[in-house]
Design a protein around this nucleic acid. Structure first.
Length: 160
DNA sequence: GCCAACGTTGGC
DNA sequence: GCCAACGTTGGC
């Protein structure tokens, strides 16, 4: 079981949007970075934990927990859609370039863990997301960091 | 809105 | 294959 951090701009698609989505599930469309794609295509497994991260907003940080709900990655339909912002003219149905996975809402957090808190924490500051210039929108999270998040932020009254 | 850091593109 | 130019990300 792996743990992932997935970024989304709340103006585009927020954790609240995921919670209210049909079946509380969405396909994670629009990833247009090869490294991120390869994680989704090669390494994600159904049931993996997802830390849902809000980026490019007033309070960037981890706002909720989700999980991978699809068995395998499959072609991102938006790449074939000329009207989509995510359209990729170089992709074809015979030779798709981009994939999606399904992400399902799991749990909200009463107290999101802000990027500020992550950076201020002696261990969490090692996380990729805290590193300077790190733009990768899908990134693996080390188990030790997930444990710290659980034990120091999400136990007892701090989890919803 | 600014801008540093990054990834991609394309000319050569 | 190099690398300058460009577009994007995302914190601040």
């Amino acid at each position: 079981m792996k743990i992932w951090l997935m970024k989304s701009e709340p103006d585009v698609f927020s954790f609240e949007d995921l919670k209210t989505a049909k079946n509380k599930t969405t396909l994670w469309e629009g990833v247009r970075n090869y490294q991120a794609r390869n994680f989704m295509r090669d390494e994600m497994k159904k049931g993996d934990i997802v830390l849902f991260y809000h980026s490019n907003c007033a309070e960037p940080g981890i706002v909720g927990l989700a999980e991978i709900a699809s068995g395998e990655a499959y072609p991102d339909p938006s790449q074939f859609d000329p009207k989509s912002n995510y359209h990729d003219p170089k992709a074809s149905r015979d030779n798709p370039r981009w994939v999606v996975v399904d992400v399902r809402y799991k749990k909200s957090l009463k107290h999101p863990v802000s990027l500020k808190e992550i950076k201020a924490h002696p261990k969490l500051s090692e996380m990729k997301v805290a590193q300077r210039g790190m733009r990768l929108s899908v990134q693996p999270v080390e188990e030790v960091h997930y444990k710290i998040l659980q034990e120091e932020f999400w136990t007892g009254s701090s989890s919803a």
